[in-house]
Design a protein around this nucleic acid. Sequence first.
DNA 1: CCCGTTCTGGACGATACCGTCAAGAACCGA
DNA 2: TCGGTTCTTGACGGTATCGTCCAGAACGGG
Lengths: 203, 203
Amino acid sequence: MARPRSFDENQVLRIARDRFWSAGYAATSVEDILTATGLGKGSFYGAFGDKRKLFQRVFDDYCTGLIEVLRRELDGPDEGAFARLRAQIMAIADETAADTCLRGCLLAKGTAELSEHDPQITAIARRTFDAIEEMLTACVAAAQRAGEISPDADPARLAALLLAVLRGIEALGKAGGSPASLPRIAETALSLLPTHKTMAPAN
Amino acid sequence: MARPRSFDENQVLRIARDRFWSAGYAATSVEDILTATGLGKGSFYGAFGDKRKLFQRVFDDYCTGLIEVLRRELDGPDEGAFARLRAQIMAIADETAADTCLRGCLLAKGTAELSEHDPQITAIARRTFDAIEEMLTACVAAAQRAGEISPDADPARLAALLLAVLRGIEALGKAGGSPASLPRIAETALSLLPTHKTMAPAN
DNA sequence: CCCGTTCTGGACGATACCGTCAAGAACCGA
DNA sequence: TCGGTTCTTGACGGTATCGTCCAGAACGGG
């Protein structure tokens, strides 16, 4: 018994996300979002409270989605764990290389722009990186059990390194450059992982 | 025969850089810079033309400085090349870990915020990454000649990977986290470099 | 059919912001 | 000392921005 919403909240979130994603937080005005979505001010502030609150929500949703996708791709039996790891890392590199408009990753962009002054954003970013690192660790450990990565290696260390490489690929991607360079970096990283019982890794 | 400037251009550039660095481009207003520097509008626009032009100049100066520092640290004889490489990479990791206010690196921040919409910024970032990669390549090659890195490895590939790791460390640093984690990543990366004539690297 | 509740549209106030401009100040060579 | 040139100060116009508020619309239970 009340007037129902005339807009789809998720659609608004998507549109707002795209605006923030493309222009950044500070450069996106509330009016931008209003015209893009067709909402009136009353509806907007009533439903989302605030530009900052909206961004935090969008950012959080984005990060949650990221983690979910990654989990779906990486989880699985020990058999094929290394293949899954490789495929996922290569996919991220390819994706980044294909992003010719240089939009990049909202997680990276939002963290770069806001982490210094918004502890909430920092916390979300931190949580996300931790989650990804954990999934990578599990995948590396699985690959070790399957005999595809040297059992002497510390899976947490390798995972942390791989996460850094992934974030680095994303960062380099924003400067353009040749499309082949990013996958090449991913390949190099994968090829350096201690596959057999070679030298002592990650001393 | 004209009235001389009453301000130090370089000092203004430094102050403006710090503002941009801390708040980002969009969130820094010209008035911010004016009050921080004490300049009047006329002087500001007369000397620097524009908020955007000023940022490009600040960004360019910053990148040039970055390259110079790195060159000073990495250049040298083949003897000790690997030690220089290691020292520099660890230094960057330590520095990033010590940056508790999460200000990060202006190159990363500026690129993340502006590369999508400002080709000039993209070009500067690109040029800077290329220069760093080139210096890393030279250093890796030197270490190979000194017998500290396997001669079978492709120095350009290793250098590209190291650059990605460095940028990744910087990106992860902005999310806070334990101070030990970043140096650990750097160490892991260094330890995985093919030191002797181990497995075929970077196939 | 009607009323309470929630939603909508947009006017509104108060700043903040960008970049221009003109009037006057400071300098220095002659 | 004087004139020409450059610099400085800050007022100004026009716009953008954020968030509030309220009058009225839409709905559905009773």
